[in-house]
Every structure is written in structure tokens, then in C-alpha cells.
Design a protein around this nucleic acid. Structure first.
Lengths: 116, 116
DNA sequence: TTGATATATAACCACATGGGAATATAATCC
DNA sequence: GGATTATATTCCCATGTGGTTATATATCAA
């Protein structure tokens, strides 16, 4: 088996930095494709393909406006990523560093003489 | 060019669900490889290879203990993911839904013939 | 209608992947 | 020493990739 498709879920879709950049731009408002092309300095097909991936995972919505296609962020698709990663926040949050130290000591004490 | 290597950064590393599962288990405490093999129902080489990816992006640390290798979470490597995705949180947070509506209206109103 | 503009798609390629199987390495036990 | 246990690595392969170039589709303008 190869790697999971980029369209499998939001995790795979935003693994690509370009696609995160696209979302960052769309976070400031709706944009046609050509705006993204200029702002990112990518080729037009490249941007269209990235947008397709983002569409397939639901991270962007499109709306036709004449010959332009207006893309809009749908950040709800990113919620699973936030939900997963937020559980790790305490590990790097200064506020919890001291608590973590205490917990580790307790664990080791209860562990029956482990040193290290 | 192909897709970025899984070891490029944390985003690519955790795009694989198995690796997120591994981190979830390690979040409960240090574990030898065989624990992960049993808990995940994966083959041992598979787990070792996933662990290598997680090591290369700094998401886990290892410690030798006899013939076992104890793996430990290093959640700090996940901070960039959290930092990126947290900026989108307001989009799905109920508390901000009403505010978003207001902001969008303001944007549209002010958009009378804007530049670009 | 013809031409220009805006976007999507297709064909192609080099390449890293995740899984499986087999093997290598290393520590422990007899 | 040999056997067992624990882990890492290597080889193999099918597959999906991101970029490029070329083309298709659709809308607007003259």
C-alpha cells in the first residue's frame, strides 16, 4: 500500500505547506483562483489542483461568479485536527510544566524503585 | 516532485493515522515497542518504522533499557500544528459564530469596489 | 464570431510511500 | 557456547503524489 491519499482527510490535505498557505489566505476572505496564483507565486494548474484537494476534504467551498470561481474557507473541516492536537497542549504549556514534573515523580515512585 | 517526505515535519508525520495512534498511546506513558505492537495489532516492523518517522520529527524520544527500547512522547514537536490550527478555532466555535456573521457583513459592505 | 480571460483537467514523470517478508543486531537466559 | 527475546533494517512493490506542459471548457469583450 502507498501513503494515504491527500484527500483521505484533513490531516493529509494540510500536510502540504502550500495548502496551508492557501487556507491562510482564504482566512482573510473569499478569493478567486487568480488571486491565489499571484499571492503564492504558483502556477495556475498547481493552485487549481491544491484547491481540489481542499474541496474534497471540505476545507473550502466554491461559488461561481461569472468566469471566476470564488473560493471560501470552511474551517470546520479542520476541527478534527484541533481536537486531536489540543490534548497535547499541556505538554508544552509552561503552566503545566511544573505539574508534569510532579506527576512524573509520582509515577516513578509508585513504579517500585525505578531510578534513571 | 513527489509528496513531501513523512519526515519533513510534524504535519506530514502525523498525517498517518497509525502514527497518531502511537502518540495517543505514548501520551499515557512510556512504552516499549512490543506494547505498541500488541495494542495496535500491527506487525513489529511496521511499528518500528512508524516510530522512526516520529523520532525523526522529534515527536518521540527513545531510551535503552536492556533489550527493550522505551519510547516516550515529546509533544513539543506537535506545537507547530497546534499553533497553526488554533487560529481557525473561532470559525467553528459557537461563541464566535454570531461575531463572524457581523464581520462578514461588514466586509461585504466595505467591499464596494475595492482593490486587490 | 473571434479573441481574450479564467479555471479545470489530462498526460506525463520522478519519487517517497506503507505494508510484507526476510534478515540483521543486540541483549538476556540456559 | 546456543537459544530466545526485542527491535531495527533491508528489499520489494503498487500506488498516489506534486509539478510541468498542453489542452479543454466557459465566460466576457469587441
Amino acid at each position: 500500500m502507498a501513503r494515504a491519499a491527500t484527500t483521505t482527510d484533513a490531516f493529509n490535505a494540510v500536510a502540504e505547506a502550500r495548502r496551508r498557505q492557501i487556507l491562510d489566505i482564504l482566512a482573510t476572505g473569499e478569493r478567486p483562483v487568480n488571486d491565489l496564483v499571484r499571492l503564492l507565486g504558483l502556477s495556475q494548474p498547481q493552485v487549481s489542483k491544491h484547491l481540489r484537494v481542499l474541496r474534497e476534504v471540505g476545507a473550502v467551498d466554491v461559488r461561481d461568479e461569472g468566469r471566476r470561481r470564488m473560493y471560501r474557507l470552511n474551517a470546520h473541516a479542520l476541527k478534527p485536527i484541533h481536537d486531536w492536537v489540543k490534548n497535547y497542549e499541556r505538554s508544552w504549556s509552561e503552566r503545566f510544566d511544573r505539574l508534569d514534573g510532579v506527576l512524573e515523580e509520582l509515577e516513578e515512585e509508585g513504579d517500585g524503585g525505578g531510578d534513571e
